[in-house]
Amino acid sequence: MRDEYDFSNARKNPYAKQVKKSVTIRLDAEALDYFKRLAEETGIPYQSLINLYLKDCANSKRRLDLHWNQ
């Protein structure tokens, strides 16, 4: 194995723009349980399901219809 490698002529990673960012988020237990149950049904990891749902909301520019009781 070489001590150093030259990557100056290497191809760019076509998936580099799709790299996910790690974040910390606090979720209600009910919401998390929902996605975990859905994950068991579908065989898709719950974090991927949450990401897919949020991505769908962002792509469709869905907005939360929230009214606070006063």
Score class of each variant (00 low, 15 high):
residue 34 Y to G: 02
residue 45 P to V: 05
residue 48 S to H: 14
residue 13 N to A: 03
residue 9 N to A: 15
residue 16 A to R: 07
residue 55 K to S: 09
residue 3 D to A: 05
residue 66 L to A: 09
residue 33 D to W: 05
residue 65 D to H: 07
residue 8 S to D: 00
residue 40 E to G: 08
residue 39 A to I: 01
residue 66 L to K: 15
residue 29 A to I: 14
residue 29 A to S: 09
residue 56 D to N: 10
residue 10 A to Q: 07
residue 7 F to G: 09
residue 31 A to H: 10
residue 8 S to K: 07
residue 54 L to P: 01
residue 22 S to H: 15
residue 50 I to L: 11
residue 57 C to K: 08
residue 16 A to Y: 12
residue 14 P to I: 04
residue 61 K to Q: 11
residue 54 L to C: 14
residue 11 R to H: 00
residue 40 E to P: 00
residue 67 H to N: 08
residue 30 E to W: 04
residue 63 R to S: 04
residue 12 K to N: 12
residue 32 L to C: 00
residue 60 S to C: 06
residue 22 S to C: 11
residue 31 A to I: 10
residue 53 Y to R: 15
residue 47 Q to F: 06
residue 56 D to R: 04
residue 60 S to T: 12
residue 35 F to P: 02
residue 31 A to F: 13
residue 59 N to D: 11
residue 51 N to T: 13
residue 34 Y to P: 01
residue 48 S to E: 14
residue 27 L to P: 02
residue 33 D to Q: 12
residue 15 Y to R: 06
residue 23 V to I: 15
residue 18 Q to K: 04
residue 10 A to R: 11
residue 28 D to I: 05
residue 47 Q to H: 11
residue 12 K to P: 12
residue 40 E to I: 08
residue 66 L to M: 15
residue 13 N to H: 03
residue 59 N to Q: 11
residue 8 S to V: 08
residue 63 R to I: 05
residue 38 L to W: 01
residue 60 S to L: 14
residue 33 D to M: 08
residue 33 D to A: 09
residue 52 L to S: 15
residue 36 K to I: 03
residue 4 E to A: 08
residue 55 K to L: 07
residue 58 A to I: 00
residue 54 L to V: 15
residue 49 L to E: 01
residue 18 Q to Y: 12
residue 20 K to S: 13
residue 45 P to S: 04
residue 4 E to C: 08
residue 66 L to R: 14
residue 45 P to R: 06
residue 20 K to P: 01
residue 67 H to L: 07
residue 48 S to F: 12
residue 18 Q to S: 06
residue 6 D to A: 05
residue 18 Q to D: 07
residue 56 D to P: 02
residue 30 E to D: 05
residue 48 S to K: 14
residue 35 F to V: 04
residue 36 K to H: 15
residue 37 R to D: 10
residue 39 A to M: 02
residue 69 N to L: 09
residue 65 D to R: 06
residue 59 N to T: 14
residue 53 Y to F: 14
residue 34 Y to F: 12
residue 15 Y to M: 00
residue 8 S to F: 06
residue 39 A to V: 01
residue 2 R to T: 06
residue 29 A to L: 08
residue 58 A to R: 07
residue 21 K to R: 15
residue 28 D to C: 04
residue 30 E to K: 05
residue 58 A to Q: 00
residue 11 R to N: 12
residue 11 R to Q: 11
residue 50 I to G: 03
residue 45 P to T: 13
residue 13 N to C: 03
residue 15 Y to P: 00
residue 44 I to G: 03
residue 13 N to R: 06
residue 44 I to K: 04
residue 33 D to G: 00
residue 61 K to N: 10
residue 46 Y to K: 03
residue 16 A to S: 13
residue 19 V to E: 13
residue 14 P to D: 01
residue 52 L to A: 15
residue 8 S to C: 04
residue 66 L to Q: 14
residue 35 F to I: 02
residue 67 H to I: 05
residue 61 K to A: 09
residue 70 Q to M: 00
residue 46 Y to F: 13
residue 39 A to H: 01
residue 35 F to N: 03
residue 46 Y to G: 02
residue 17 K to Q: 06
residue 69 N to H: 10
residue 57 C to D: 00
residue 2 R to S: 06
residue 63 R to G: 12
residue 26 R to A: 11
residue 34 Y to D: 04
residue 4 E to W: 11
residue 7 F to H: 03
residue 24 T to H: 13
residue 54 L to K: 08
